[in-house]
Simulated assay, not measured.
Amino acid sequence: MIWLGIDTSNTPLAVAIVKDGQIVAEEVSNIKLNHSGGAMPAIERLFSRTKIAPAELSAIAVSEGPGSYTGVRIGVTLAKTLAWTLKIPVVGVSSLKVLAANVPYFPEIICSLMDARRKNVYAGAFDGSNHLENVVEDGHYSMEDLLSRLKPLNKEVLFVGHDVEQFWETIQESLGEMAIRAPFTCDLPHASQLIALAQQLPLPSPEDVHQFVPTYKRIAEAEANWIKDQKAKKQNDSL
Score class of each variant (00 low, 15 high):
residue 32 K to N: 13
residue 186 C to E: 14
residue 233 K to V: 08
residue 36 S to N: 10
residue 221 E to S: 07
residue 75 G to Y: 05
residue 77 T to G: 14
residue 44 E to P: 01
residue 27 E to Q: 12
residue 180 I to W: 10
residue 114 M to L: 15
residue 28 V to D: 04
residue 131 H to I: 00
residue 239 L to F: 10
residue 89 P to K: 08
residue 224 A to N: 09
residue 63 S to K: 07
residue 201 L to W: 02
residue 237 D to Y: 12
residue 223 E to V: 09
residue 177 E to A: 12
residue 132 L to N: 09
residue 188 L to A: 04
residue 175 L to Q: 09
residue 141 Y to R: 14
residue 37 G to P: 00
residue 49 R to S: 15
residue 236 N to P: 00
residue 116 A to D: 10
residue 27 E to F: 11
residue 99 L to Q: 03
residue 126 F to L: 02
residue 21 G to D: 04
residue 97 K to C: 01
residue 49 R to G: 02
residue 130 N to H: 15
residue 52 I to A: 06
residue 229 D to M: 13
residue 136 V to K: 00
residue 145 D to H: 13
residue 33 L to Q: 12
residue 207 E to Y: 09
residue 2 I to Q: 08
residue 148 S to K: 14
residue 33 L to H: 07
residue 109 I to D: 07
residue 28 V to T: 15
residue 57 L to D: 12
residue 6 I to C: 08
residue 139 G to C: 04
residue 146 L to R: 10
residue 187 D to L: 01
residue 30 N to I: 02
residue 96 L to Q: 05
residue 166 Q to Y: 06
residue 138 D to M: 02
residue 122 Y to M: 03
residue 33 L to G: 03
residue 200 Q to N: 08
residue 13 L to T: 03
residue 187 D to G: 02
residue 77 T to K: 01
residue 19 K to Y: 06
residue 196 A to P: 01
residue 163 D to R: 10
residue 206 P to R: 01
residue 223 E to T: 07
residue 199 Q to S: 03
residue 212 F to D: 00
residue 147 L to F: 07
residue 44 E to A: 08
residue 155 K to I: 01
residue 230 Q to I: 04
residue 109 I to M: 07
residue 122 Y to H: 13
residue 25 A to R: 14
residue 161 G to P: 05
residue 229 D to C: 06
residue 99 L to G: 04
residue 111 C to F: 09
residue 54 P to F: 12
residue 88 I to Q: 06
residue 230 Q to T: 06
residue 65 G to T: 06
residue 187 D to V: 00
residue 128 G to R: 05
residue 161 G to W: 10
residue 73 R to T: 02
residue 83 A to L: 09
residue 68 S to P: 02
residue 172 Q to A: 01
residue 234 K to C: 00
residue 227 I to M: 14
